[in-house]
Nucleic acid binder design. Structure first.
Lengths: 140, 140
DNA sequence: TATTGTTATACTCTATAACTATA
DNA sequence: TATAGTTATAGAGTATAACAATA
């Protein structure tokens, strides 16, 4: 009998938890991921965003249109290839990403504060390893 | 300057990763969560499922109807109160939850295998603490 | 011709409001 | 009257197919 918590199950529950922790701006998960990516990496091609976020090209066209309508992102042309559309976050979009990050961090800080010092230390010690795990997945 | 990985950011990326790791049965996240809950806790009232998963009562009615149509869950009456509907997973539903769990576990096992032994140990050591963190959130 | 992006259209999911049945 | 659930209806989101513009 193996009664230890299983990594997949714990991750699954972390996913559910995270989904409920940042609610500012009422973005769905894909929209939030696109904005966060635009902040991390700067302007991106529409097609590249579609591939990286795992949605169709028309799906990304429509998502960017929504973000644009809400003032969170804008389209700019690419001077070297006029078929291309570059998408970038507006200051409002960047601000929203930051507000969501802060909101999540505050909620997590409170939850972590309810743990024992030993538990806090264990999570803290695992953070770099978890980061590398996520990176390995992103590259595959 | 704090260049350490931040807990919220790492959790956010874990959420994105998990969403792409279990795809069997083509369930959306809410449907998967409901089935997993039915397996964990046994038959539940429709209203209770709606509250716990954060969807409206009509939304849960429709989700359960879809699960029923796909043979993954069934409705049964409550003998003591005839207004109540109890929802339970069918054997097919339980089997699908298990297949998704196994699929996720296998994918994660492969990713974890690419980490250093020290990283693996750190994640392993943090598992009970992460479980308690998730529990604290669930109770709040 | 191939590639980048958009438009047209249809389907899934989920919400609110109004309803039925039971307590 | 209050509660459990369903039905009616509408809107958001996303997919595939067909299209337009540029390379």
């Amino acid at each position: 009998m193996d009664s230890r918590p299983e990594l997949g199950t714990v991750f699954d529950e972390i996913a559910i938890m995270v989904r409920r922790l940042s609610t500012a701006g009422q973005l769905n998960m894909t929209a939030a991921a696109v904005l966060a990516r635009l902040r991390r990496k700067g302007p991106q091609r529409l097609t590249e965003l579609a591939i990286c976020e795992g949605v169709s090209q028309p799906g990304m066209t429509q998502l960017v249109t929504r973000l644009e309508r809400e003032g969170l992102a804008r389209r700019t042309p690419d001077a070297s290839d006029r078929r291309v559309v570059l998408v970038e976050a507006t200051p409002e979009g960047l601000d929203l990403v930051e507000r969501r990050r802060a909101e999540r961090a505050a909620a997590l800080h409170e939850l972590v504060g309810a743990l024992s010092p030993a538990d806090r230390a264990a999570i803290d010690a695992a953070l770099p390893a978890l980061t590398r795990l996520v990176e390995i997945h992103r590259e595959s």
